[in-house]
Every structure is written in structure tokens, then in C-alpha cells.
Design a protein around this nucleic acid. Structure first.
Lengths: 194, 194
DNA sequence: ACCTGAACACCGTTCAAGT
DNA sequence: ACCTGAACACCGTTCAAGT
């Protein structure tokens, strides 16, 4: 109701990052369907068409948003380089990031996870699991399945907001999946100590 | 390119089911974003505003679509009343239904699964698992997690359409989850033979 | 009861024009 | 280089009017 009115301040050049940050804030506050070029422009004190100088499309803007949420994703509570806490920690970090911006989550439904920001951690997981003796295809499967489950779970826990404390369900499902992953990696480890 | 032109045929009263079927066909053919009241009306040889007589909102239309996909969901390959093939079969049936209408899947992201059409089977699962000695909360968790995973998986396999044959990943994840579910049901069964 | 047409308040995007 | 304004082709939805 008390929609804060922002003064125009048409000052000087915005960066792509600026408009991405503003877009994320807009979506956080008012939801994904509130994000229109016109409203985003208004929030920045700029005309909607000016945005097209920093962003090719609306799709491009959504991609940037996607990356902004996934960016700097760091596994939670990881010590050492055992694959299980690493993959589990990554899933928990992903869940935290998504829960911090629940309105953006639907974006993860359509597009693939091609944000380069998240590729770094994934590479590390791949490496560690490979060292632990997992087959390449099993590694891809594991990352796939854990990621899907995490996104799916966040979607569910944020849409059914009547039932809080979905942490148990998440841990439960995640551990079940990790057990399944562990069962595929029965071959002896390469040379690592554990 | 060869967009088939439909003749108007403004004949007589459409039912809610008619427009729901037409909407589903439209989405199947041209995607979710092609579904507008105006285009749906045109496809039926009717004015857009006439639709509001059978449907309260666009949201209402989407709900009907949701239910149409979920409707008559029957567990796949189920014999007997053991909980595991039942829950697994339900997940596979859900996946099949979603894969039959991949363009509708994003709808499952937002709204909760409150389509009464699907409640029947869920009730049966609940009953069987209860008989098998599962705690009520574990049953809710299990259904929750399996449903989430299935939807998440379909989302993933339909968006990354470069990689076919995601059946393995699905079976893998599903079995892992069912293993996890089984581990929670350690209390003795009530009176059933298995 | 059902359908229509005009109208309102929005969209994304193009394009020629301004500085 | 960056921003603007008008314009185009769309939206969902309301409402008074037709039969």
C-alpha cells in the first residue's frame, strides 16, 4: 500500500549491473509478473526504451537475473574434499540462494542452468567425484538429480507457504538421493585417502 | 508457417470442458505463452469476451488446464497393494502425463497440487502406506518428495532437449528416494502380508 | 442465458529523432 | 553514445448493449 515513490534522478549512465540489481529488487519486492520494462525503467528514473541499450531483450534481462541469483554459489559447511559433503553442501547452498529470492525461482524452470557463474563449483564437484572413482555418466546423473530435486523442493516449499519447516523433507530427500549416488560409486577410489 | 485456418462455426453454446480441451490443444501446439483469451476465442470461432461466461478468470482457465492434465491419473504397472510399486507407479504415471503435455508443466510450478482429480490416487497411497506401518508425517513427506522430484525431473528433461533418454536418471533418482522412504518405515506392518 | 463491440489500462519492441 | 517520444501490435478485463 505504502508504495515508496522514487524520484527520477535521470543523472548519468547506468551499467548493466545496475539495472540487473534493480530488476532483482523489483522482483523480490513485487513478484516476477511485476517486472516489466516500463516499470523497471520507472524505478530507475529512466524511460523503458533506454533499457534496451544495456539489455538486448527481456529474455536477456531474465538471463541476467538468473545469473545474479546463482552467482557466487559456495557450498555450505564443507571441510575437506569428500564428494558427499561437497555435493550436499552445494545443494544446501543452492536451496539457500533460491529461498533468498523465491520470486525468481520460476525462472529456473524454463531455461537450462547455463549461467557461467555456477559452472565453477560444478567443475569442482565433477573433479572430486571423478577422483573418488565415479564414472563420468554417474557424475552427470548425480549432479542432475540433486539439482532437480533441490529446485523442485524450493518450488514446493515456497508455493505451499502454509506449511513451514520443510527443512526435514529437504534433508530427507537429499540424503536419500546421496545414498543412491553413493551406491553407484562402488569402484575403488583412485588414489585419494577418503 | 502453415498455420491451419479454422472456420468460425459460431454455432451454439460451448461447455467449460470444450474450451478447456481447446486451450490444452492450443498450448500443446504453440506453447503456454500462445494461450491468450483472444487467441483461444478465435480458435473456437468466438469472441474473447464470450469465454468469461464459462471461465471466471485467466487464472481459472489455467487451473482447469492443470486439472485436465492431472485428471484420471492411474499408477503405472501396479499389481497388488504394496506401497512401493504403488508410489513408484504413481510417479511414473505423473511423469508420463507431464511428458504428454510438456508445455503445461510450468503451470505446476506456481500453484499447489490442489486439483481434486489427483486426490483420489493420493488417498489410496496414503491408505496403503498407513497399513504398511508408516507414520502419518512420513507418508506426507514421501508423497511430497516423490512428487517434487518427478515434476523437477520432467522440467529438466524437457528443457534440456538436446539430451534424450533421461529415463535412467529418473529411475535412478526415484529408486533412491523410495529407498529413503523405505528406511523411514521401520515399524512393523499392521496386518498386511507384505 | 449467451454473445458482442468498444473501451481501458496495460504489455514488449521498433524506429526516427534528439543531445 | 545514450536517452526520448510516438507508434505498432499485442495483452486481460469491464461494461453497456444486443438477441
Amino acid at each position: 500500500m505504502s508504495r515508496t515513490v522514487r524520484r527520477p534522478e535521470p543523472q548519468r549512465a547506468y551499467t548493466r549491473d545496475d539495472i540487473c540489481t534493480a530488476a532483482l529488487a523489483l522482483v523480490d519486492e513485487e513478484g516476477l509478473e511485476a517486472l516489466s520494462m516500463r516499470r523497471l525503467g520507472a524505478r530507475l528514473g529512466i524511460e523503458a526504451m533506454s533499457l534496451y541499450h544495456h539489455v538486448r531483450d527481456k529474455a536477456d534481462l531474465l538471463d541476467a537475473l538468473h545469473a545474479a541469483v546463482l552467482g557466487k554459489l559456495e557450498p555450505e559447511g564443507v571441510k575437506g574434499d569428500a564428494w558427499r559433503p561437497l555435493l550436499g553442501g552445494l545443494a544446501r547452498a543452492l536451496r539457500s540462494a533460491l529461498l533468498r529470492h523465491p520470486n525468481v525461482v520460476p525462472l529456473f524452470v524454463q531455461g537450462s542452468v547455463r549461467a557461467p557463474e555456477a559452472m565453477g563449483v560444478l567443475e569442482r564437484v565433477r573433479h572430486v567425484m571423478s577422483d573418488a572413482g565415479f564414472a563420468e555418466s554417474d557424475i552427470v546423473n548425480a549432479i542432475h538429480v540433486v539439482g532437480m530435486f533441490t529446485i523442485g523442493h524450493v518450488i514446493f516449499e515456497t508455493s505451499n507457504r502454509d506449511k513451514p519447516g520443510r527443512d526435514v523433507t529437504f534433508r530427507f530427500g537429499l540424503e536419500a538421493l546421496l545414498d543412491g549416488v553413493a551406491r553407484t560409486g562402488t569402484r575403488p577410489a583412485k588414489r585419494t585417502k577418503r
